[in-house]
């Protein structure tokens, strides 16, 4: 039994040593759904430049919002960073963010990439676009997102699951521009064209196209960038749809940030988000994940720039949040799983 008592002592010691360590006032606390390796280099640099230490926790957006809601006024968090406009919209909707009055952010972030009420600001831009086999698809055959529902692609299309928020945002903005009925017909057309059941990730979609399981699909551009770093001669290429006059343009989404409703240090939080929106920080924020900077003054990484220029859809991204639930229901009805 000596073992047992020794073990209980260990347990008690463990619990006690783990206590303490309250964050002081001279620092920031960040809750981030953007993965650690994409955000930590920026946090370190900010601390280097300003002397302000930053603590952060990572989690998925859903649990982070639930955590903020449960903590209420007692929260230590100052800044919420998350991917996808739908999540940002939802955070604002649940009154977890406060409005930021910042001329700097208004100048750096284009109007359609931020909340109309200034509760969140996009910081990097991701384009969800068509990817196709360079061996089996002539880019001349491609035109729009809607075109993927065309009969000629029967048994040739690969899609990621509709559980992925990027697809939900895409369909939400399609509802906004084309209406619900038309979008549902179109999504049914996509489902009819599938060569394989929907995949769990964009990377799998690209690999399936490269392997010949299907000929084209929809992905966020940075997933191709990552694969190209390892295998530069993958037989696939991006195509920018909906570029003709009167068409909607390429669907873009953001990862972005806001100041929490009960932030203990809202001024410092605002300054940090402002810092992220310009100059070297803005370049790094986007290029760490091969995304596009939101600030038009900042150039994207060379690998990203090599994919060519495109005209992006300029619908305000809060629409993606407002219509996300409608998009999910629509995809359920259309049998897009």
């Amino acid at each position: 039994m000596r073992v047992l008592s020794r073990l209980s002592c260990c347990l008690a010691a463990l619990l006690l040593t783990a206590c303490g360590g309250k964050p002081g006032d001279a620092q920031l606390v960040v809750y981030t759904a953007r993965a650690e390796h994409l955000i930590q280099p920026l946090l370190l640099r900010y601390t280097e430049e300003t002397g302000i230490p930053i603590r952060f926790v990572t989690d998925k957006a859903g649990p982070l919002l639930a955590r903020l809601a449960a903590e209420g006024e007692a929260t230590q968090a100052d800044v919420l960073i998350t991917v996808d406009a739908g999540n940002l919209w939802q955070a604002a909707q649940q009154d977890l963010l406060q409005a930021i009055d910042s001329p700097i952010l208004e100048a750096n972030v284009p109007a359609h990439l931020r909340d109309p009420e200034d509760r969140w600001f996009g910081l990097s831009l991701r384009a969800r676009t068509i990817i196709h086999s360079t061996e089996r698809v002539d880019p001349e055959e491609l035109n729009t997102y809607a075109g993927l529902a065309d009969d000629r692609w029967r048994g040739r299309l690969c899609l990621r699951t509709s559980k992925e928020v990027y697809n939900q945002s895409l369909v939400a903005t399609m509802i906004a521009s084309g209406g619900e009925t038309e979008t549902e017909t179109l999504v049914r057309g996509w489902v009819d064209n599938l060569a394989a059941p929907p995949f769990a990730s964009d990377t799998q979609v690209i690999e399936a196209i490269a392997a010949g399981q299907c000929d084209l699909g929809l992905v966020n551009s940075y997933y191709l960038g990552r694969l190209q770093r390892q295998q530069p001669d993958l037989p696939v290429a991006l195509f920018w749809p909906d570029q003709a006059a009167g068409e909607r343009g390429v669907h873009v989404n953001v990862s972005g940030a806001g100041v929490t409703r009960h932030s203990p240090r809202p001024e410092a939080a605002r300054a940090f988000i402002e810092w992220l929106s310009a100059g070297e920080a803005q370049r790094l924020f986007a290029s760490l994940n091969l995304e596009y900077p939101v600030n038009p003054e900042v150039a994207p990484a060379p690998l990203v720039a090599a994919w060519g220029e495109f005209r992006a859809d300029d619908i305000n991204l809060s629409t993606a949040g407002e219509l996300q639930a409608a998009a999910v229901r629509l995809m359920d009805r259309a049998g897009y799983h």
Binding site: G62, T161, K163, V165, F199, A200, Q324, A325, R329, H337
Partner: peptide, 18 residues
């Protein structure tokens, strides 16, 4: 596996339908 179960339905309701 993108195999839809009650658990994925739970998450879809939470994350997708808010």
């Amino acid at each position: 596996f993108n195999y839809d179960t009650l658990t994925t339905a739970i998450y879809r309701t939470w994350y997708g339908l808010f």
